[in-house]
Simulated assay, not measured.
Amino acid sequence: MSRIDDTKEFIPVRIAVLTVSDTRSLTDDRSGDVLVDRIAAAGHALADRKIITDERAEIAEQLRAWCADPQIDVVISTGGTGLTGRDVTVEAHRDVYEKEIDAFGTVFTIVSMNKIGTSAVQSRATGGVAGGTYLFALPGSPGACKDAWDEILVKQLDFRHRPCNFVEIMPRLDEHLRRK
Score class of each variant (00 low, 15 high):
Thr19Leu: 01
Ala40Asn: 14
Pro12Asn: 05
Thr7Lys: 13
Ser21Val: 07
Val13Arg: 06
Thr23Gly: 10
Val13Leu: 06
Val20Ala: 08
Ile39Leu: 11
Ala16Phe: 02
Leu35Glu: 00
Thr7Asp: 13
Val17Glu: 02
Asp33Tyr: 08
Asp33Lys: 09
Gly32Leu: 08
Ile4Thr: 14
Val13Lys: 05
Ile11Trp: 00
Arg24Asn: 08
Leu35Asn: 01
Arg38Met: 10
Thr23Phe: 07
Val34Trp: 04
Glu9Pro: 06
Thr7Pro: 03
Gly32Asp: 07
Val20Asn: 09
Thr27Gln: 14
Glu9Leu: 06
Thr23Ser: 15
Ala41Arg: 14
Ile15Ala: 07
Val36Trp: 00
Val17Lys: 02
Val20Pro: 06
Ser21Asn: 09
Thr27His: 14
Val34Ala: 10
Asp33Pro: 00
Ser21Pro: 07
Asp28Glu: 10
Gly32Asn: 11
Val17Ile: 12
Val13Asn: 07
Ala16Pro: 04
Ile15Met: 08
Arg24His: 13
Leu18Asp: 09
Val36Ile: 13
Phe10Asn: 02
Gly43Val: 12
Arg3Ser: 15
Glu9Val: 14
Ile15Gly: 06
Thr19Tyr: 04
Gly32His: 12
Thr23Met: 09
Val20Gln: 11
Val34Cys: 07
Arg14Thr: 01
Ser31Ile: 01
Glu9Thr: 15
Ser31Trp: 04
Asp22Leu: 07
Asp22Pro: 04
Leu18Ala: 13
Val36Leu: 11
Gly32Tyr: 11
